[in-house]
Amino acid sequence: MPALTVENLSKTFPRSRPLFGKAAPGVRAVRPMSFTVEQGETLGIVGESGCGKSTLARMLVGLLPPSEGEIVIDGQAPGKGDPTEFGKLIQYVFQDPNSSLNPRKTIRQVMEAPLKHLHHLPADQRDARIREIFATVSLRESFLDRYPHEFSGGQAQRIGIARALAADPRIIVLDEPVSALDVSVQAQVLNLLAGLKARLGLTYLFISHDLAVVEAVSDRVMVLYFGSVVEIGRADSIFAHPRHPYTRLLANSAPVVGRPLTAPEQKGTELPDPLNPPPGCAFAGRCPKATEICRTDIPQLRDMGEDQRAACHHPND
């Protein structure tokens, strides 16, 4: 049984109705998408700003009710947009560790909340559980009675991870968990996450804009563009052998030591307008291989070689 199954999940944000006339069609932040994540797998999700990765993540943890589609976690379908039902199954680690902690609560109060409200543990068991979790993420117990502003970014992110673990979830959504951290601390947190996963049998959804980080931690990678999945495949091959031209553009844009500096895309292109989406492939305007069919028909995801699927009319070889 897969850890997570997503069927035709989509989100459309309605636009306000003008005083006269009909409301304009809403903005489709996430277009219908389906994918599964196996138990113990790490699925990396990459894409640029505005591609819908945060909207997807918020739907997966129940913070945002989806417009359509279904989310099945561990064989259960939690109620639509109800974080308490989701909370026991799936948890979220936020990008900015400091703003995800209430400045007026001690770390103990922060850690107790999921134990109290999700698992209804009595006080003595809560205390034991908190100590156990703190030992797992190697945090000192003396931190428990301090306030968030006393911690560095790396420590605060460990606390954020500890809070997610307190809910005892099956899946953790990591939304850019290291992009606010310094590189030397980033490696500490990534290694901690890898260790936790192996020890506790967790499943991760790892969202990041940093391809190198995603490649280093993921089993499979899903590439989003303009609210759709454009390519999904094994982490060790997707950037080396991209099928979709957008994946190739991303891979070529990442700064790599020893590669000469050339802009892979010199045209001053911009993302398509979400208020006025193009009728065909959203990437056609930036794509060097685009033809007539790309501008009229939306390509569907299809199998391309081993464990790799891409949505493109003219995939790379």
Partner: peptide, 15 residues
């Protein structure tokens, strides 16, 4: 400790 693209899945050296 900086991961580089093209080296696959791996443990990172932290400070």
């Amino acid at each position: 400790c900086v991961p580089e693209l093209g080296h696959g899945r791996r443990e990172l050296a932290a400070i």
